[in-house]
Amino acid sequence: MTPRVSVIIVTWNGRELLERFLPSVLATDYPDLEVVVADNASSDGTAEWLGAEHPEVVVARHPDNWLFARGNNAALEDATGSLVCFLNNDVEVPPNWLRPLVAALEDDAVAAVQPKLLQVDDRSRFEYAGAAGGFLDALAVPFTRGRIFEALEVDRGQYDDARDVFWATGAAMLVRRDAFEDAGGFDESFGMHQEEIDLCWRLWRAGWRVRVEPASEVYHLGGASLPAGNPRKTYYNVRNSLVMVAKNLPPTHAARIFRGRRVLDGVAWARARAMGNALEADAIRRGRRDAAVMISALEVDLEGSAVVLPSYRGRIVEDAMLRGRRHFSDLPTSRFRPLGL
């Protein structure tokens, strides 16, 4: 029996993006597809346009801009699928994109899977948000197959193997609804950025696996919510990554990461100041400050769940900046620990 898939697309004043990208989603070749657009109180006529032009789309109208995490969680109430695909509003998909992802979840041990993400305007090159599957380094800094920091590789088929990954991108992620709900969904305190990494970490801790299936590929514009270099993006990434560590690791493990991150974030702050980027420096400072407040209020119970450490024992900043390892394939395989451990 073909499982029903609900595609949830969160948008805020993104009507132009929906006009460009939604038709490809609606043209998906899959027999039991439901599309839900979660409208975060847009003022650009998004909901009205959808009602007039695409009445087949379910519109979840939120009373405020609930950002990515809460916007997606709340839209589940309007979704009926046993599988849920969280898809950004700036993603174009080919007709056959969904079937390989659904097939990956035929493995009862797999909770979530992502496609390969390429740039919408240069489909020979990986896209920043998820590329071909994500990992975390020893300081909980994320990177992906196909993208380390700003180095975006050309797709030559080098990462076309379907495999387990530490995290799947929230730009295009298919997940079992029951696993998502049992894990608590996206952490709404995150707002946006790294909430999908936190979710995947919790799925691994609960005994699930997370995959990438490059037989499915989609095309992502990227930067539609917050472009690279935006201080607000820096703030969320700094804050949420630290909170994520505190949520998912025992205190002794987390403390080691926090010590390393204090140095790393301090260097990033000093670099921003030296380059005259006061807003960036302030975003790092505020991100660390607010993370400390959020961590102090956490009530974390790790009893009974597995200790799952970051997947790469090395430090990706040192690898990229000091050793010139700008491609995932340049990283020593001996530094990767088995996933789920």
Rank of each mutant, 00 (worst) to 15 (best):
E280W: 03
V245G: 13
P94F: 08
V308N: 11
S329Q: 04
L117T: 11
L322W: 07
R271N: 10
M1K: 05
L221T: 04
L76M: 10
N89G: 08
D265L: 10
L279K: 06
A297L: 10
T144L: 08
V141N: 11
L203Q: 01
I295W: 07
A183C: 14
W49N: 10
S24V: 09
R239Q: 04
G229V: 06
L67P: 01
V57D: 09
L76G: 09
F186E: 02
R313N: 12
D265Y: 11
P231N: 14
G324D: 05
P23M: 06
G191H: 13
R271I: 05
V120H: 14
S82N: 06
K247R: 13
P94G: 15
L322D: 15
R70H: 01
F68P: 00
N277Y: 02
V238H: 10
D330R: 11
A104C: 06
R337T: 03
A27H: 12
L76I: 07
E150I: 06
G81H: 07
Q194S: 15
P310Q: 09
V91C: 13
D160G: 15
A109L: 13
L139D: 04
D198H: 08
V141H: 04
T252P: 00
F180T: 09
T80P: 00
A104S: 12
I8P: 00
D301I: 01
L302P: 15
N72M: 12
S305Y: 13
G81V: 09
A111M: 05
F143G: 00
L105P: 00
N13I: 04
L26C: 07
V59A: 04
W12H: 15
L98S: 13
R313T: 11
N65P: 12
K233F: 11
S82C: 05
R123M: 07
L331I: 15
R239I: 02
V308L: 13
P227M: 11
A228W: 09
V300K: 11
M294W: 01
G324H: 04
D78F: 11
D107I: 04
L83V: 14
P3F: 10
R177L: 07
R209V: 06
V5F: 03
A268C: 02
L101V: 08
L203T: 00
L136G: 02
A162I: 03
E195W: 05
E150Q: 13
R335Q: 13
Q194K: 10
S6Y: 00
L309K: 11
S82G: 12
K233V: 02
Y236D: 04
R163L: 09
S82P: 00
Y235G: 08
G276L: 11
V93C: 09
R256I: 01
